[in-house]
Write a protein that binds this DNA or RNA. Structure first.
Lengths: 344, 344
DNA sequence: CTCAGCTATGTTACCGCTAACAGCCATTTG
DNA sequence: CAAATGGCTGTTAGCGGTAACATAGCTGAG
């Protein structure tokens, strides 16, 4: 009634302020605020009331230092602008939600050096775990991660050797499967259209697997076209036009992602081409966007949500059974033939 | 030559380890690692070498606590899955890049309560500043923010009263402008198709401004349709179909965002409707995706990149001139008529 | 009535780092 | 040559919490 509720508006509040306001020790306040240890109902109420009326917000920096526990999980991904990683994040958040752990994201823009510095920054906050996309990292980054002493989960890809655990799909196999489906459907003059980015290892591996499967039946790519930057949908149109002009007899277009594939599909439809009769198309990822297109693009989902979930479960220690880390979880994407590949 | 480089692989390294390895005090190591104060070139080299070979990563938790400085900027946004906020983030990152500040994002899913808890979590890390979307917050959240003692920038919207600073556009005005353009082009039977989400205040304000402008010339909406969840492109198709079936004589469809607008456009084209002759369409946001569509949807860009940049500049203290905070920066979106609105 | 056995609270010693200041040595200056 | 100067390094005292242990009441069994 008589005490001014805010003694000094500029100084930021500490446990001591709450402790003084409620007449108990700082330790007891700390216990109340964390629901740790026995505190009588009466003091609990009093402390909570004091904390609330002061507007006290605990200082996790101090808490983390003292307890040597940080409730953060670093999530390091190449990009936020192509729908695939946000979905991974959704999976991660879902699982972490009720574990007291909180994801913190870092973006590398597909640059290994940037990844290295983002990792350094992350590790300097001593997170409880780290989830990062891909298996390819700078040497320094690998060393840091190995030394960190926390669970590390590399996601998206399992074609390589993980530092600790890994959750993902085999992109090489995904490329192979798609090639096999295309060949089985009778297409023979096949072109690849994809990202130029030298550091998109997963797209590269898909292409490798794809070509390998072609080679196995004596085929090779009829054409290939690369791009970088710009609107994916528009790029897809442009690239498709370029390929069709240069190699008019192609009968299949394999895109490295759904977005450019969708652009290509729109181009083909605009051009009045017979899809999938004369020409077939396929992408990769299984993005939701495709559902609204005039025709459903063939694709392969990358299990993004599931990857996020599994990775988070490993970090949260919710491992299936008695596993200690260092496990590799392979997921298997399913082919969605859509309407752009001839039925066999 | 003789010392084992990694004394105890399980314990995590501290300044003391580096200090012992290089034969100087912890303080000197700290100075070297932060480039602060004078250190002779010789010791600097020695310390850096030791730190590198040990694989030392500084503990920012301890550093932040000791120095009372945290190089983090909280960015709290409603969603990551619709392209608009990632672009804001890009702007923020761009500016923060060379300030030593690092963005940390939190996602609220358009839930005020979730926003409140995300803010609490953020503030408990004592960031140097906070950027958050929207002007509407729970009472508790407002109190926290006002007490926090750090720069707060509310972004996207300026129709309301900010806690501290604000950077954004007037959505009410944006809605009005679009309505005026539509009316000027001669459309009269106008329908609105948009998000149901009760907490998307910006969409709500656009609609309010839109209806206000209609009312001013004696018009009112011929129909309205709301949705929630699901694939935006597909939803756009479905909603458009529903509206056209229910109110066959509409001659304009105003969508609350470009994604559903694009779906609607694809639907109209599929249905062979005369766009923009018999029916016009418009969206909002100016997303890159539209560039690849068969016809360019009329839209209004939301200045997302610029908003992110300006907000970050305020936090980074790069204010134009001698401003102390509490400023409101209004940006003005431009109408992009595209191909889906009759030329006047 | 006494004391083990609780429960509820307080005390002490850090967590790993940095601000502030102190000290040392080699130069420079008058 | 003493004193002032300046460059480099070390010492001390926290930052705001929490772990671990200590202690004060209170209860009920013997």
């Amino acid at each position: 009634m008589s005490k001014p509720p805010v003694p000094d508006p500029r100084r930021t509040l500490t446990l001591r302020d709450v402790s003084e306001a409620s007449g108990v020790s700082e330790m007891t306040v700390s216990r109340v605020l964390r629901n740790r240890g026995d505190v009588s109902e009466a003091t609990r109420e009093r402390v909570l009331e004091a904390a609330r009326s002061l507007g006290y917000v605990p200082n996790k920096i101090a808490g983390a230092l003292a307890s040597q526990r940080v409730n953060l999980v670093g999530v390091v991904i190449p990009s936020l602008s192509n729908m695939v990683f946000p979905e991974v994040l959704t999976g991660v958040s879902e699982v972490l939600e009720d574990t007291g752990l909180q994801p913190v994201v870092g973006v590398t823009n597909y640059s290994p050096d940037r990844e290295e510095s983002v990792l350094y920054e992350m590790l300097s906050w001593r997170p409880s775990g780290l989830i990062l996309a891909g298996l390819e990292h700078t040497e320094a980054a690998q060393a840091m991660l190995a030394q960190a002493g926390i669970p590390i989960v590399e996601i998206m890809d399992i074609d390589g050797s993980p530092i600790d655990s890994a959750v993902g799909i085999s992109h090489r196999r995904a490329g192979r499967k798609m090639a096999e489906a295309i060949i089985a459907a009778g297409y023979r003059r096949i072109a690849f259209l994809g990202t130029q980015m030298p550091n998109d290892h997963r797209a590269r591996k898909r292409l490798e697997g794809f070509e390998e499967a072609l080679a196995r039946v004596g085929l090779s790519l009829a054409d290939r076209e690369f791009y970088s930057g710009g609107s994916a949908l528009l790029k897809g149109r442009e690239m498709t036009e370029a390929v069709l002009k240069r190699t008019p007899d192609v009968d299949f277009l394999y895109y490295s992602n759904d977005m450019i594939g969708a652009g290509g599909l729109l181009y083909c439809l605009d051009a009045g081409l017979d899809v999938p009769g004369k020409i077939g198309l396929a992408g990769f990822n299984g993005v939701e966007l495709l559902d609204g297109l005039p025709r459903r693009l063939a694709t392969m989902d990358a299990c993004r949500l599931e990857i996020g979930r599994r990775a988070a479960e490993i970090i949260a220690g919710k491992r299936p059974e008695g596993l200690v880390g260092g496990e590799v979880i392979e997921l298997f994407p399913t082919l969605q033939p859509g309407d752009t590949i001839r039925p066999t």
